[in-house]
Every structure is written in C-alpha cells, then in structure tokens.
Simulated scan of single mutants.
Amino acid sequence: MMLAHDQDSLKRTPLYDLHVSLGGKMVPFAGYDMPVQYPAGVLKEHLHTRSQAGLFDVSHMGQLRLLPKSGRVEDAARALERLVPQDIVAIALGRQRYAQFTNADGGILDDLMVANFGDHLFLVVNAACKAEDEAHLRAHLSDDCVIDSLADRALIALQGPKAEAVLAKFCAKAPSMKFMDAGPHEVAGIKCFVSRSGYTGEDGFEISVPAADAERLAKTLLENPDVVPIGLGARDSLRLEAGLCLYGHDIDTATTPVEAALEWSVQKSRRSGGARAGGFPGAEKILAHFDQGAARRRVGLRAQGRAPVREGALLFADSASAEPIGQVTSGGFGPSLNAPVAMGYVPTASSALGTSLFAEVRGQRLPMTVAAMPFVKNTYKR
C-alpha cells in the first residue's frame, strides 16, 4: 500500500461518503482514499465473503472502451493483440478474458480484463497503472481505435457463495451467467456492465455502474443481510488464498508470464507454431520461455509453523546456506485455512510441489513447502 501523505492529494471514489458512514478505516491506496477495513475487522470480513457475500468498492480501477474505427470489433481485437500475448480475436460476444500488457523485454506492464461487448472492447486495468495504460493504448492503437476513458463510472464487486442469489433479485440475467460472461445488464433498474468474475476465488460479479448511481446501488445490495462491506485488507487475503497475482508485487515489468506461472492465460494461437504466434512486445523472450522454460517460477508456499511469512522474506534452499535462492512476493495469514500462506519466486529446479525451502523471518529460518495453488478451492460457476 502507499505510504501516508497529504490526505488532500488523494482521490475519492463515488462511494467515499458511504465508506465513512459505515465506519470504514480509510487509508491511502494507489492515489485514492480507500477503506482497508470496517468495524467487524479483516478476519470476519474475509470469512463472511467465503461463507456469504461481500461488497467491494473497486472504483479506483481503470475502465476503458476501445471502439474500432472500422466498426468491426475484430479489428479492435487484432489491434489490441499487438500489445498483449492473448488471443483477443477469439473472445466471443459477451465473454471476457484475462490478459497482460507486455514490454520489449517480455515483462508485464499491467494485467487487465478484456470483454467483447459486440461493437467495442471493454477493458478494466489496475488503479496504479491506469494513466500509463491509457497512454500506452493511445500511443499504439489510436490509428485503429477510439480510446475512451470511462472515468464517469464506478466499479463494485459482489463476491461469495450467496452473490448470485442476492444479485438475482435485481438482475434477471445474473443466474444464467457463467464464469467470465460479461455484458450490459440492468441492475435494480440501472444500466450497468456486469461480469461474472472477481478477485477472491469465489463465485461473484463485478458491476460497472454510472458514478451517479453507485451509492444507490451499493446501499440496495447492502440491504440484504447476507451482504456486508469488505475493505482492502480482506480483499488482499482473499486473493492470496486464491493464488491470484497482485500487480507490482507478484508480477511486474521484470517478470514474464511464464515466470509468473501464467502460461494458461496465453492461448496456443499466440504461441510458437500458432496461427497468430508472436507479434506482441517481448514475444521473442516470452516464446523462448514457453519453448525452453524460464530460470525461475512463481510458486505457492505453505509454512510448517504459525508465523506469517511476509513479502520480502528471503528464501533459502536449506537452513544453513548463505545465499538466498528466491524471495516471497505476497504473504500473510490465510483465515480460511487458519494457517499462513505465501507466494514467491524460486529457481525452476526448486519449484516442484513438496520441495522444502526455508524463509528468513527476523533472523530465523522457518521451514516452508512448495504448495499447489489456489490454497482454497475456487467456486467459479462454469
């Protein structure tokens, strides 16, 4: 999270007043004043999302529209494929796909969601990167697309096993949606963009709503006793249990998708021998990693004790070696597991499940084991 600074310089989402009225503890995050938790606390918020439904304000994220100048959405898709290693052309109408902007060295500039809305592509990008992402798109795609920043929209996420039942009362189409379906839908009489996706590992929805209607919609959803507001603290612990990357921590400009264990996100058509292989920044290095392997890899880590192993902790092959072989990039206590969990990078030779490692915490070497992710089974509706 950002270090505290002049509160007056922080932006506020359309739900700021609602957060304050609900007792949210506000902290600086990605240039915004955001709730890290509410009076119930991070632990209860986390467990409530896993058992019922949590409402998250993610309006700090960037929302963009790529409108093809030709009028053909496949032309916008082909243009975007110049910047990402994913098959965007193959995204069907009403579907969404996870992608990454890459740089010339194969590193990740940002990760994002791309949806096909029929006449345009709808993108959601990370808050800390959204200005750079928009500039990147304008620099490279302006000949093919009109790039609209949808700054007049808020974004809320409804996550958890009861999310469908809650949203179904206000959106008739919600129950028929499958994981990664996305498109325009009315929610409580408000014209929204809805996707069945999220950042918790739970079934749920992300709802793009006009800023002027955001508070009314949030209050409507919160009237259901199964729904409680959730802050950034539980959002982070939920995504860690789900094994999901946090940009700037688990992935960055020096990390390729293969190093990050994100091979699943790059379709065969864009890999070596595929119909549209390459053609994106860093393709030579990324495709070489696919063909020959990468020297390091992101892995899940389980501690044998109770002490959380935090970001930055060095990883060692044994309890006595002087040189670290890797580092933790995300770590903390997993409330659903009642145990610590972490992610980090190690040499590929040390990335097999069950490999024993040691993390250095306050001068002590704590035993760790390379573990499968997600740490908590996801519940997406496929």
Rank of each mutant, 00 (worst) to 15 (best):
K162T: 12
A163Y: 00
A163V: 03
A163L: 04
A163S: 13
E164H: 07
E164P: 03
L167E: 00
L167Q: 01
L167W: 02
A168F: 13
A168E: 15
K169C: 08
K169P: 01
K169N: 12
F170H: 15
F170W: 14
F170L: 14
C171I: 07
A172I: 09
A172E: 11
A172D: 12
A174K: 00
P175K: 09
M177W: 05
M177V: 11
M177C: 04
M177F: 13
K178D: 14
K178V: 14
K178T: 10
K178G: 08
K178R: 15
M180G: 05
M180V: 13
M180K: 13
D181S: 12
D181H: 14
D181E: 11
A182N: 07
G183M: 13
G183W: 09
G183N: 11
G183D: 13
P184A: 14
H185V: 12
H185I: 10
E186R: 13
E186T: 12
V187Q: 07
V187S: 10
G189V: 15
K191I: 09
C192W: 05
F193G: 06
F193R: 15
S195V: 11
R196N: 11
R196K: 15
S197D: 10
S197T: 14
S197K: 11
G198S: 11
G198R: 03
Y199V: 07
Y199C: 06
T200Q: 04
T200K: 04
G201C: 09
G201S: 10
E202I: 04
E202Y: 05
D203Q: 11
G204P: 02
F205S: 02
E206H: 10
E206C: 09
I207W: 01
I207C: 03
I207M: 06
I207T: 03
S208R: 06
S208I: 06
S208Q: 13
V209A: 02
V209I: 09
P210V: 04
A211C: 06
A211L: 02
A211Y: 04
A211S: 14
A211R: 05
A212H: 06
D213F: 06
A214I: 03
E215M: 06
E215D: 08
R216I: 05
R216G: 05
A218S: 10
A218H: 01
A218V: 04
K219L: 09
T220H: 04
T220L: 03
L221C: 11
L221W: 01
L221K: 03
L221N: 02
L222V: 07
L222A: 10
E223F: 12
E223A: 14
E223L: 10
P225C: 07
P225I: 08
D226G: 09
D226I: 06
V227S: 01
V227M: 06
V227W: 01
V228P: 00
P229M: 14
P229N: 09
I230R: 00
I230G: 00
L232G: 01
L232K: 01
G233E: 00
A234R: 00
R235D: 00
R235C: 00
D236W: 08
D236A: 13
D236E: 14
D236Y: 11
D236I: 09
S237G: 04
S237P: 02
R239F: 04
R239W: 03
L240I: 08
L240M: 15
L240Q: 04
